[in-house]
């Protein structure tokens, strides 16, 4: 108990032990919920945009409770940029692949030439692929916006 009290007093202003512990316990559940919102977008309200924002909010919460350096341990700036570009590329790549395989641009039923499946079911699967791309892009861009704006571009401490 005394150890904890000393630890709490040695922290700089704005960093609270209670908030940090609560955030550390909440973050896995927030991320799980974000993934659920993305993959369950076919059957309930949700989808790529909303799930991506929830996933990004988990990192923003971490950056608010701790500081920016803590979030760089989980997702570095480089990984963040690569993942965000990958998200945009998944969408455009899926769309271009459909055109290459002989269908129209963004006509997912053309993907049935790769994996034989009912073309109508492929349209459902294509929407899922696209949503994953959107989710990745939105999550990483949200995190990157927060990093840049909160630290003025220096990426040191943050708010």
């Amino acid at each position: 108990m005394k150890h904890l009290q000393e630890k709490a007093q040695s922290k700089p202003l704005g960093e609270s032990l209670i908030v940090q512990t609560a955030v550390r316990m909440m973050i896995p559940f927030i991320q799980l919920f974000g993934l659920y919102v993305i993959v369950h977008g076919h059957y309930s309200p949700g989808g790529g945009f909303q799930g991506g924002v929830v996933l990004g909010a988990s990192f923003i919460l971490m950056a608010l409770a701790y500081d920016l350096q803590k979030t760089f341990g989980y997702i570095s700036e480089r990984t963040n940029a690569i993942l965000g570009s990958t998200g945009a590329l998944i969408y455009t790549g899926t769309a271009a692949l459909c055109a290459v395989l002989g269908g129209y641009f963004l006509d997912y039923s053309a993907l049935a030439k790769i994996i034989p499946m009912n073309p109508i079911d492929w349209r459902s699967m294509g929407i899922f692929l696209v949503e994953v791309g959107v989710g990745l892009a939105v999550m990483n861009i949200m995190v990157s916006l927060f990093w840049d704006i909160s630290s003025g571009g220096k990426m040191d401490e943050g708010l």
Partner: peptide, 20 residues
């Protein structure tokens, strides 16, 4: 409006960056 909300978030982010 789903897409408009996302655009509004991006526009707010860029505007805040330019203001900074």
């Amino acid at each position: 409006m789903l897409t408009a909300i996302v655009v509004s978030v991006s526009v707010t982010g860029v505007a805040l960056a330019i203001m900074q």
